[in-house]
Computed example of a mutant assay.
Amino acid sequence: MVTSVISDMDGVIYRGKQLIAGANEFVQKLLADKTPFLFLTNNAEQTPLDLKLKLESLGIHGLTEDNFITSAMATAMFLRQQKERAKVYVIGGGGLINELYNVGFSISESNPDYVVVAKSSTFSFEQLKKAVRFIDHGAKFIGTNPDMIDPVEGGNEPAAGTILAAISAATGKKPYIVGKPNALMMMLASRKLGVHPEECVMVGDRMDTDIVGGMEAGMKTALVLSGVTTTDMLNDFPYKPDYVFNHVGEIDFKSL
């Protein structure tokens, strides 16, 4: 029986700066029914406070920072388990840097232990050169998430996966990716909610991250067609979601 909800954000709640139909009703129903839930996002650019404020600007109120877990948070937690102190070269935004600082890591271009890569709107050839050099000299290659594109109003834009691909092509090395579809991300979320994965439903718009990650963690999965995945794409995958909806406003969790 589903008692808790873990939901993606990009392509599920909003596209860029535009709220998706039914999203506010979806959140308000979760709050009214006191359903345990988390927004789990591969977005590593923003902090939970940033995301809360963003949703408020779109008209969704009543959330707290505890309602969010990001791939930046998961990456910092994972690396802290691997090494107590570390120097990190970062390609990514303030959200990722903040989380790495929070676990006691230093941001450095002097013999870093890790090269950590997320989506970056300011990614440059100079950063690419530095990342390649550090990895060639032994730094561990870490990606926050593998998403190749992100849905925005009017279409899609390149995401973390495109930067990871460039670095991987130049170094011949593949990154270890912490965020979705790694089931580690799902397990951290269910642990934060205090429930078993089989009690959760994972709601997302991506078959290759949200749905496969939820499935491998033992969760029910609900695909929404408001983001990246279309109905025509479903047959391209060797697995399927438990449920398919046009948008989150159609979901009645009591019937799952």
Results as ranks from 00 to 15, higher is better:
residue 222 A to V: 02
residue 118 A to Y: 05
residue 143 G to L: 08
residue 52 K to Y: 07
residue 46 Q to A: 11
residue 30 L to V: 01
residue 53 L to S: 06
residue 8 D to A: 00
residue 69 I to L: 14
residue 86 A to C: 12
residue 24 N to S: 12
residue 114 Y to T: 06
residue 65 E to T: 13
residue 69 I to E: 01
residue 52 K to S: 00
residue 55 L to M: 15
residue 177 I to E: 02
residue 161 G to H: 01
residue 102 N to S: 15
residue 169 A to L: 09
residue 78 F to I: 05
residue 183 A to C: 04
residue 227 G to M: 06
residue 205 D to I: 01
residue 31 L to S: 04
residue 2 V to M: 03
residue 84 E to C: 12
residue 204 G to T: 07
residue 228 V to P: 06
residue 219 M to R: 01
residue 232 D to A: 11
residue 25 E to N: 13
residue 99 E to H: 14
residue 133 R to K: 15
residue 74 A to N: 01
residue 125 F to Q: 13
residue 96 L to W: 15
residue 180 K to E: 12
residue 74 A to E: 00
residue 199 E to R: 11
residue 127 Q to D: 07
residue 42 N to V: 09
residue 146 P to K: 09
residue 149 I to L: 15
residue 135 I to M: 11
residue 19 L to H: 11
residue 203 V to G: 03
residue 72 A to M: 09
residue 2 V to H: 01
residue 218 G to L: 08
residue 150 D to R: 12
residue 133 R to S: 11
residue 240 K to C: 07
residue 113 D to S: 03
residue 183 A to R: 14
residue 203 V to S: 00
residue 82 Q to R: 15
residue 188 L to T: 04
residue 168 S to N: 00
residue 61 H to C: 09
residue 233 M to W: 02
residue 146 P to M: 12
residue 2 V to S: 02
residue 223 L to W: 00
residue 61 H to P: 10
residue 149 I to R: 13
residue 53 L to C: 11
residue 211 I to L: 07
residue 20 I to P: 00
residue 72 A to V: 04
residue 77 M to K: 15
residue 27 V to L: 07
residue 148 M to C: 14
residue 140 K to C: 12
residue 218 G to T: 12
residue 168 S to I: 02
residue 86 A to M: 10
residue 38 L to G: 06
residue 135 I to Y: 10
residue 161 G to T: 09
residue 17 K to Y: 15
residue 93 G to L: 04
residue 144 T to A: 06
residue 37 F to Y: 03
residue 155 G to A: 08
residue 192 K to V: 02
residue 190 S to C: 13
residue 223 L to S: 04
residue 225 L to F: 05
residue 157 E to I: 14
residue 104 G to T: 08
residue 33 D to V: 00
residue 181 P to A: 04
residue 54 K to E: 12
residue 143 G to K: 03
residue 240 K to T: 13
residue 2 V to Y: 02
residue 243 Y to S: 08
residue 162 T to Y: 04
residue 169 A to N: 13
residue 72 A to C: 10
residue 147 D to N: 14
residue 162 T to G: 13
residue 79 L to M: 15
residue 4 S to H: 05
residue 52 K to V: 08
residue 63 L to K: 12
residue 218 G to Q: 11
residue 32 A to K: 08
residue 165 A to R: 09
residue 10 D to Q: 12
residue 14 Y to H: 14
residue 77 M to L: 15
residue 59 G to L: 05
residue 76 A to I: 02
residue 208 D to Y: 03
residue 132 V to R: 11
residue 170 A to K: 06
residue 220 K to M: 08
residue 122 T to P: 07
residue 90 V to M: 04
residue 244 V to N: 00
residue 54 K to N: 12
residue 99 E to L: 10
residue 117 V to Y: 08
residue 24 N to G: 01
residue 81 Q to C: 04
residue 67 N to P: 02
residue 93 G to P: 03
residue 221 T to W: 00
residue 117 V to C: 08
residue 175 P to S: 08
residue 96 L to Q: 10
residue 196 H to M: 14
residue 191 R to Y: 10
residue 140 K to G: 10
residue 114 Y to C: 04
residue 160 A to P: 04
residue 172 G to L: 09
residue 57 S to E: 11
residue 161 G to V: 03
residue 102 N to C: 05
residue 12 V to G: 08
residue 168 S to T: 10
residue 211 I to N: 06
